[in-house]
């Protein structure tokens, strides 16, 4: 493996290495979009890209939450289940109990954040691997879903249908209000990560948790905080998904945690923590969305190629990460 080690040491020395995965993703995205435009005439319509946002707004929000967790070097497997639970609880309260929208919204968001908070506490104070704690969280949330009901519940509450049907227009093109919400979440997250102590502490913990502790940073608060943020984002993602689907279903968002993780990794965030950007995550989600769109446009390729391509991209990006990170002693 001499050559591997050589390439690695050369890459690890580069000053700009933290941007390298980001450039790679950007190039990949441009390549995929370009090939789409060349092959299909309809692809050049700006609405194609906007549709990618519309179809993946909820994933974007969930992936932003996941970015925080992965930046600390953790992982959150519960996000898909929390999304499903949110759609289920919203639908039940709105349709079954007749609660008003303004009461349901804060309640489900609080529920998601609380779940994340609980998991964060167990991870930090009892030193159990995030992977296994959030796995239990995933079982819990899915289990609660099934306990509420196993069939799909349609939502026709006015606020929800308004959110689902209204369009934010500019010119000939449009996006859904959910996309606006998702973009606001992205901007807030990017600001928090770049310009607040919470954000910087997140990076510090991912870089070296022991140092972070010795430098006097609030490790407990930050670590529990990122899982709370991820729980909140999952719940918000669930709300957006229920706008999109106009239903609550226990089987919504099965496997979404994998999509979210894939988006974050393809977006250039190191799975070992400490390096990455929300903007990268946006690019990652776009890559996933464009793959789907390309496969739909092609018509000959089947949907499962999406998973194979995502797997291949994951492999490529993980290998790239391995090459650019200096070996930890």
């Amino acid at each position: 493996m001499t050559t591997f080690a050589e390439v690695r040491s050369r890459l690890a020395g580069t000053r700009q290495r933290r941007y390298l995965p980001l450039y790679a993703t950007l190039a990949l995205l441009a390549l995929m979009y370009g090939s789409g435009v060349v092959q299909y005439e309809a692809f050049s319509d700006p609405q194609v890209v906007l549709n990618v946002f519309i179809d993946n707004g909820f994933l974007l929000v969930v992936a932003v939450g996941m970015t925080f967790v992965i930046l600390t070097g953790g992982i959150d497997l519960s996000v898909g289940a929390v999304v499903a639970l949110t759609t289920m609880v919203s639908a039940t309260l709105l349709e079954g109990q007749g609660w008003p929208a303004f009461a349901v919204l804060p309640l489900v968001l609080l529920m998601g954040a609380t779940l994340g908070f609980g998991m964060g506490c167990i991870i930090h104070y009892f030193e159990i691997q995030p992977f296994i704690v959030t796995l239990a969280g995933m079982f819990l949330a899915r289990g609660l879903c099934y306990t509420i009901g196993t069939s799909s519940i349609t939502i026709d509450e006015p606020f929800w249908t308004t959110m689902a049907q209204s369009k934010v227009r500019f010119g000939d093109n449009f996006i859904s209000p959910s996309v606006v919400i998702a973009l606001v979440v992205v901007l807030v997250a990017a600001y928090v990560l770049a310009f607040t102590r919470l954000g910087r502490n997140t990076y510090a913990i991912g870089g070296n948790p022991r140092s972070a502790h010795l430098m006097g940073l609030p490790v407990a608060r930050t670590r529990i905080g990122v899982y709370t943020i991820s729980g909140f984002c999952s719940a918000l993602g669930g709300v957006l998904l229920s706008f999109y689907m106009l239903s609550g279903n226990s089987l919504h968002a099965v496997g979404m945690e994998l999509d979210a993780i894939a988006a974050v990794v393809i977006g250039g965030t190191l799975l070992t923590g400490g390096s990455g950007f929300v903007l990268g995550t946006v690019l990652g989600v776009l890559v996933l969305g464009i793959i789907q769109t390309l496969i739909t446009f092609d018509g000959r390729l089947s949907s499962w190629w999406t998973k194979i391509v995502i797997g291949a991209l994951l492999f490529a990006f993980i290998l790239l990460q391995r090459l650019i990170t200096p070996r930890k002693q």
């Binding site: 591997f4 992982i75 992977f131 998973k307 995502i310 797997g311 994951l314 290998l319």
Partner: peptide, 18 residues
């Protein structure tokens, strides 16, 4: 290659279904 197990096997977990 020396990739963390949880990450290395995630690749096949995703691609394998496809």
């Amino acid at each position: 290659v020396g990739i963390q197990p949880i990450i290395a096997t995630l690749i096949l977990m995703v691609a394998g279904r496809g």
